[in-house]
Amino acid sequence: MNVLAQGAPGGDAVSVAEAVAFWILGPIALAGALGMVFARNAVHSAMWLVLTMLSLGALYMAQGAPFLGFVQIIVYTGAVMMLFLFVLMLAGRDSSDSVVEVLRGQRVAALLFGVGLAVLLVATVGRAFADVTPAGLAAGGSNWNGNVPGIGQLLFTRYLLAFELTSALLITAALGAMVLAYAQTRAHVRRGGQRAMVEARLRGDPARIAPLPGPGVFATANSVAVPAVLPDGSIAADSLAEIIDRTEVRPAPEPAPDDAHALTGRPLAERGGRGTSVEGGSTEGSAGDGSTAGTGVHR
């Protein structure tokens, strides 16, 4: 705690407000990190990570580095994690962790490398705590008209080469991504774009220009099982879906023509005497229509 807060502009002593901020934000950041590891849902994981990043940003601000804090929020929380979310959403919302091991020996390797990384981190960070004396922000900050100009001055003088190299790396990555993305659309380009496709279609490349006819003006039903009817009353052959045509049609049991309840499939006894009270002529037509539509295509 002492070591972490020593960079504060106030000097070596940790102020009360800073300690409070640390003891609130620190556990939240840690909880976010654990939540990210243990959450089953990928989007929940991402949200936990966002929480960690936000608390880190707030911690930076509390330690007298407002620029770093807000850039952390804008760049990492705002842009990088948003891209993560973008990809996760495309992956589907119910894609949880799979426990099936696809790569052989993956877990053992992950364990080894994980432990190795942990040892490395503990060694370096521990050494930083023990041996290195922190210079504090006071050296760079107050001489240079506050935090922001100080960072700018360092970035564009002392660390210019590293800065430019990083930007070159990022540009290379962006170009690589573009090349990869455009490679997949080459098939589309070969077809010549929208105009060429329209012309080919008009010349009869796919035999038909217009979409297949739907049930249309003369139809008596809007089911896909009912073919479209041409103006002269004949059936439009194009409107028949092949899969329906191929499906065997089983004749449905004919419902009692005078009783709409027959369509619900409840037993006759349950219906009791109510069926007889229904008017005769009014239901007959609709029940008949329903039965023909239900049995599929009739020619």
């Binding site: 989007v43 949200m47 966002v50 936000l54 407002p66 620029f67 807000f70 850039v71 929020i73 804008i74 929380t77 705002g78 842009a79 948003m82 979310l85 959403m89 506050g146 935090n147 922001v148």
Partner: peptide, 22 residues
């Protein structure tokens, strides 16, 4: 009046969009 006031507005708009996306 923060020394990084403009960044605060940018940060807020970039967090606010999480509401829409989520």
């Amino acid at each position: 009046d923060l020394p990084v006031g403009v960044l605060v507005v940018l940060a807020c708009s970039s967090i606010g969009v999480y509401g829409i996306v989520l």
